[in-house]
C-alpha cells in the first residue's frame, strides 16, 4: 500500500489530509482506513471503476457525507470530527461551516438554484456567507462570468441554459467564494458529448491561472493527464497505485490499473 510517507516528491504542507478514514453505508464499507494528503496547490485526480469510493472522498471533504471513522483536515482544521484529549468529538456546525467556506465544489448535475438568475446564483454565497456588499460581489461575479464565457447570460434563468453553460455557471459560482480547495465531481458526466469540451477548456484555464488545490474525479483521461500533478487509482476503497500522470497512464504497475485503463481508454 502506498502511504503518504512514501510521497517523497510532494512538497509543502498538507492542504487536505485523510487520516485513518473509514466510511460505511450501512453494512457496506466503502472506505477502509484510508490515508493520503494533498499538498497546497496540488491537483490530484482520482480514477478507478465506479463504486470504488472516489466520489465519496470528495463528498467527505465537502462534509456531504457523515464520516464513519477517522479524521479529515483541510488547511490543518478538522472538518467533521476532531481529536480532543484522545476522544473523537464532533466539530460544531458553525465551526465546520467556517472551514468549508474555503472549499468549493462543482457537481455532476450542476445543482444551480433554479429560482435564481445566473448572477443571483453566483453572488448568493459571497453576499450571505462572506459578507460582501453588492457593490463588491456583482463586479466580481461579472468578471467570473467573463472568465467562463457566460457574461452575456447573467440575467438568464438556469433552465434557459444548456448543460455545458449551466456547468460553467456552476464553476463560476464555486470560484466566487475564492476557494482554496476545489472539488470537481464528474463535472462532465451529465453532459452531451459535444458540450464536454467547453467545460474542460474553462477548467484547464483555471488550473493554469490559479494555484487552487484540486481534487478531481473524472472519466476524461486526457483531461486528467493535462491538469493533474498526481493520479490516484482506486479500487474497492483503497489506493491501488499513485504517481505522476505520465507514469500512471503510460506504464502502470498494478494489474488493476492496467485492466481499468484498457477498459476506459
Amino acid at each position: 500500500m502506498p502511504d503518504n510517507a512514501d510521497n517523497a516528491g510532494q512538497p509543502g504542507i498538507p492542504h487536505i489530509e485523510f487520516r485513518d478514514v473509514v466510511k460505511k453505508f450501512g453494512d457496506n464499507t466503502v472506505l477502509n482506513d484510508l490515508n493520503f494528503t494533498v499538498a497546497k496547490g496540488e491537483r490530484v485526480t482520482l480514477i478507478g471503476p465506479s463504486g470504488s469510493g472516489k466520489t465519496t472522498i470528495l463528498r467527505l471533504v465537502m462534509t456531504l457525507e457523515e464520516l464513519t471513522g477517522g479524521y479529515v483536515f483541510v488547511g490543518g482544521d478538522p472538518l467533521q470530527y476532531e481529536d480532543r484529549g484522545g476522544k473523537r468529538q464532533r466539530v460544531p456546525d458553525k465551526v465546520r461551516r467556517r472551514t468549508t467556506t474555503q472549499i468549493g465544489m462543482v457537481f455532476q448535475h450542476f445543482n444551480l438554484f433554479p429560482n435564481m438568475s445566473v448572477l443571483e446564483n453566483i453572488i448568493e454565497a459571497p453576499l450571505h456567507v462572506m459578507g460582501l456588499s453588492k457593490a463588491e460581489a456583482i463586479p466580481k461575479a461579472e468578471a467570473l462570468l467573463e472568465k467562463v464565457g457566460m457574461a452575456d447570460k447573467r440575467d438568464f434563468n438556469p433552465s434557459q441554459l444548456s448543460g455545458g453553460q449551466q456547468q460553467r455557471v456552476a464553476i463560476a459560482r464555486a470560484l466566487a467564494m475564492d476557494p482554496e480547495v476545489l472539488l470537481l465531481d464528474e463535472v462532465t458526466s451529465a453532459l452531451d458529448p459535444e458540450l464536454v469540451g467547453e467545460v474542460l477548456t474553462v477548467l484547464k484555464d483555471i488550473a493554469e491561472e490559479t494555484d487552487i488545490s484540486m481534487l478531481i474525479v473524472t472519466h476524461e483521461m486526457q483531461f486528467a493527464r493535462d491538469v493533474s500533478d498526481r493520479v490516484m487509482m482506486f479500487d474497492e476503497g483503497r489506493i491501488v497505485e499513485e504517481g505522476a500522470p505520465e507514469k500512471i497512464f503510460s506504464s502502470p504497475e498494478s494489474q488493476r490499473t492496467q485492466d481499468f485503463l484498457r477498459a476506459v481508454l
Binding site: 465544489m105 457537481f107 450542476f110 445543482n111 438554484f113
Partner: peptide, 11 residues
C-alpha cells in the same frame, strides 16, 4: 443536489 449545493456554498 440543491441541499448539497447549499452545503457546498456554506450557506
Amino acid at each position: 443536489g440543491q441541499y448539497e449545493a447549499i452545503s457546498a456554498l456554506s450557506l
